Simulated scan of single mutants.
Amino acid sequence: MPRHAREKGPECMYHIMVRSISDTPLLFKNDADKDKFLRLVKKYQEAYLFRVYGYCLMDNHAHLIIDAQGADISRIMHGINQSYAQYFNLKYNRRGHLFQDRFKSKIITDERYLIALSAYIHCNPKDVINFTNKIEKYKYSSLGMYLGSMRDRFAILNRGFILNMFSRNLSKAKKLYWEYICTHNTSEKVIEIAADMEFMDEKADYRSERRVIIRSFTPPEVVDFVKHYIKDYDSNIIVKYTRTNMESKSLSALLLRSVCDMTQKDICSFMGNISQSHAAKLCARGIELLRKKSEYKNIITDFVDRKIS
């Protein structure tokens, strides 16, 4: 049976769930595995500028609330899942697929659903021994960060978007949100969400006052910006065999992927018929440059801010 096209849109916010395949009962065997997954979320967040409004990692599955901010959710999750599967297979000496089918996604349609969804996700640890009556202490859920009792170790969470729906006063918002969690974790709306884990396709999306990045910039704009940003005015990224400007090529490839919404095949064609594996390596190197060189860490946000200002 052919797969149905995934419902997506530039202003969409998503409930994402990933689960391990049946012959691998544990997607995360220990805390180190959960840490690795969250580090990968952070890595791809830096490249695609999406927001995370909530998450919970259980042993055999994970939930995330992702505001794609105009990026392609399929590319985001493909990068995270593929990187985690490679890590997992190498660490545990296994081969083959790790995740059950494609990741599941459901478009969040309104504010009430978003709040109820966050409650459902944050209540997941109640089935874990030692956390039944203290779900706020489960460190692989974002609930503790919402309440201020835990720090965001991976710097991936935006809690303000949902908390502001309760109150503009942070202390009051945290109190009201916790009261909501305590009184609604068995409500009909949350039970409805729990029963809806098949993630039927949705055609609506949730619009708000969020700033969505419309990723329609052109490749020449990107290349020109990168040249001036890193002061490499003589580089030519479309010369196939040159190795003298790898930083310029890597950063350009990353921005082409992130803000121009180009596929690896598109990048191959633009940069001189390089292979798709080479394009993937350039993008990966670009991400590493963002993480390792302080002078490059804001290049994507600086490009976006400059183009829309």
Rank of each mutant, 00 (worst) to 15 (best):
A47F: 12
N185A: 10
K175C: 13
A155S: 12
H61L: 00
I181P: 11
C268H: 01
I308R: 12
L38W: 00
A279Y: 07
L49C: 10
K126A: 15
F303W: 02
N93D: 05
I300R: 01
F103E: 05
A85R: 10
S275P: 02
E179F: 02
I287C: 10
Y140H: 03
T242F: 00
A195M: 15
S22Y: 08
F103I: 07
Y229R: 08
D152C: 02
G144A: 03
S83E: 04
T186S: 13
Y113A: 11
L290H: 05
R95I: 12
I230Y: 00
C268W: 02
L143K: 05
D205M: 08
T24D: 04
V259R: 10
R51D: 12
K34F: 04
F50A: 03
C123P: 00
D23F: 07
M165G: 02
F103W: 06
R3P: 10
Y146T: 01
E111M: 13
M150L: 15
K292N: 10
E221D: 08
T186M: 11
M246F: 03
V18H: 06
L256W: 00
S22D: 06
S83N: 07
K42E: 12
M58Y: 03
L143E: 08
K42D: 09
I156M: 02
S142I: 03
N185F: 13
H78T: 14
H15Y: 09
T242S: 15
K34G: 12
K174P: 03
Y146R: 04
V52H: 01
L256F: 10
K34N: 07
R6S: 05
C182R: 13
L98N: 13
L251Y: 07
A85D: 00
D23M: 08
L290V: 04
N60Y: 05
E247L: 00
L282Y: 13
A71L: 11
D224W: 00
E192W: 14
L163T: 13
R306S: 09
R3I: 11
S277F: 11
I214C: 05
Q276S: 14
K265N: 12
R6E: 11
L254S: 05
L26Q: 08
A155N: 13
K292V: 08
I66K: 08
I193Y: 11
P25T: 04
G160N: 06
I162C: 08
E288Y: 13
R94P: 04
M197K: 12
N30E: 06
I16L: 10
N273L: 03
S235E: 00
K227Y: 00
R211Q: 12
G54R: 06
